[in-house]
Simulated scan of single mutants.
Amino acid sequence: MIFHIREFVHAHSDTVHLAFSAAPGFHLFLAISGFILVYITQPHDTPMNFMLKRTVRIVPLYWTATTLALGMALLKPWLFQDADTSLSSIISSYLFLPHYDLGADIQPILFVGWTLGYIMLFYLLFSLTLFVPEQYQIPSAILMTLGVIAGAHLLPNGAYREFYGDPILVEFAMGCIIGLILRQSHVQDFVRRTPMWPFVLIGLAGFALAMKLDWEGWGKIATYAPPSALLVFACAGQDLFRQPLKNKMVSVGGQISYGIFLIHPLLISVVGVAVFNITGNDWVATALMFVVIIPLTTVLAYLSFRYFETPSNTWLRRTLRLSNKPPKSVRQVQIPSQPGT
C-alpha cells in the first residue's frame, strides 16, 4: 500500500520523491507462500478439495474488487489509465491469466492482481502433488515449479512466456524447501536451542544489500532469495518451536491483509486524483494521501474480513462440502498444537 501510494505520487508530481522499495516484500511473499502451502496441507486432502479451499478464499473478494475496478475504468478511464478493458483482458483478469495492460506491463484490470496469478499457479501445482505419495509431494512441487520456468521458455514471446518463465518462481520452491526442512527433528532441536533473532537481523541486512545492488534476472534471485529464506525460517521456527508472538494487533493485521492488498488500489486512484486537484500543492497532497488512504483502507479491510470474506468463505465451504478442519502446524512435529492459520 505504501509503495503504491509512492508510485502514484511520483507519477503525478515533479517535486516529491519518496525513497521506498517494495521488492523485499514481494520476494518474502513468494517464500512465505511456498512455506504456507507445506504448512496447511493435510494428509486427507484430495487435489480437488485442496484447490477449492484455496480458491474460495481468494476468489470472492478479488472478483468483487476487479468488478469495481472495471466499472471505474469504464466510467472514469483516467482513474485506471493503463487498464485494458477489452474482452480478452477482462477474461484474463478474472481467470488469473497473464495479460499485457495498456502500459505494456503484465497486469490485470486491478493491477495488484498479477501476484495472484502466481498464487493460483502455486495452488494448482501443489494440488497436483496430492496425487503422489506424501513423501514425494514437496519434491514434486519443486520439480514442477522448475518445469514451469523451463517450459515457459519454449513458448513464443509474449505474456505467458514472460510471466511463467520468470526465475522469481524459484522462491516459491525455496519456501517449500523451508517447510520440508522444518519437519526434520534435528532441525527442530536446533531451533529450540538457538535464538532466531540473529537470523532476522542477517536477513534484513541482506535485503538492504539486495536493494543497493538492484540486480535483474537471476542476479535478483541470488540477492533476494537468501534473506527471504532466513526471515521465513527464523519467524516460522520461532512461532512453531520457541515462543510464538501473541499480539492481537499482529493477528488482526494478518487477517485483514488480503483486504488491504485488494482495496487500497481502488482508493489510491480516487483519493489521489482528488487531493492533487484540490490542494494544488504536491507535498500537502502527498501527506493527505498517506493520512487518508492508510487508515481508511485498514477500516474497510476489517469490515470486508468480518462481513464479507469470512461469511462468503464459510458459505462456500459449506455449500461445496469442503473439509473445515484446522490446519496442523507442521506434519509430524512433536510440539503442542498451534492455532490454525
Rank of each mutant, 00 (worst) to 15 (best):
residue 228 S to M: 09
residue 134 E to Y: 09
residue 54 R to W: 09
residue 163 F to M: 07
residue 81 Q to H: 11
residue 15 T to C: 00
residue 141 A to P: 05
residue 189 D to K: 13
residue 261 F to I: 06
residue 328 K to D: 01
residue 189 D to L: 13
residue 90 I to S: 07
residue 141 A to T: 02
residue 157 N to T: 11
residue 254 G to F: 06
residue 38 V to P: 02
residue 62 Y to W: 14
residue 260 I to Q: 08
residue 51 M to Q: 09
residue 173 A to G: 09
residue 159 A to V: 13
residue 328 K to T: 11
residue 142 I to P: 01
residue 131 F to R: 12
residue 171 E to M: 09
residue 227 P to C: 00
residue 338 Q to P: 01
residue 194 T to P: 06
residue 192 R to K: 15
residue 309 E to M: 01
residue 211 M to L: 15
residue 133 P to C: 01
residue 138 I to D: 02
residue 160 Y to H: 11
residue 29 F to S: 08
residue 92 S to F: 04
residue 281 N to Q: 14
residue 36 I to L: 10
residue 13 S to K: 00
residue 208 A to F: 14
residue 175 G to F: 10
residue 150 A to L: 09
residue 139 P to W: 05
residue 258 Y to L: 07
residue 321 R to H: 05
residue 131 F to A: 03
residue 180 L to E: 07
residue 144 M to D: 06
residue 329 S to I: 07
residue 23 A to F: 03
residue 133 P to W: 04
residue 267 L to W: 14
residue 171 E to V: 15
residue 236 A to V: 11
residue 5 I to Y: 00
residue 242 R to V: 12
residue 40 I to Y: 04
residue 62 Y to N: 10
residue 330 V to T: 06
residue 131 F to I: 12
residue 139 P to M: 03
residue 277 N to I: 05
residue 70 L to D: 01
residue 306 R to F: 03
residue 10 H to R: 05
residue 4 H to N: 04
residue 35 F to T: 05
residue 316 L to P: 12
residue 167 P to F: 13
residue 191 V to A: 03
residue 269 S to Q: 11
residue 265 P to T: 13
residue 156 P to S: 09
residue 311 P to E: 11
residue 285 A to F: 05
residue 27 H to W: 15
residue 263 I to A: 05
residue 146 L to P: 01
residue 102 L to N: 08
residue 6 R to C: 00
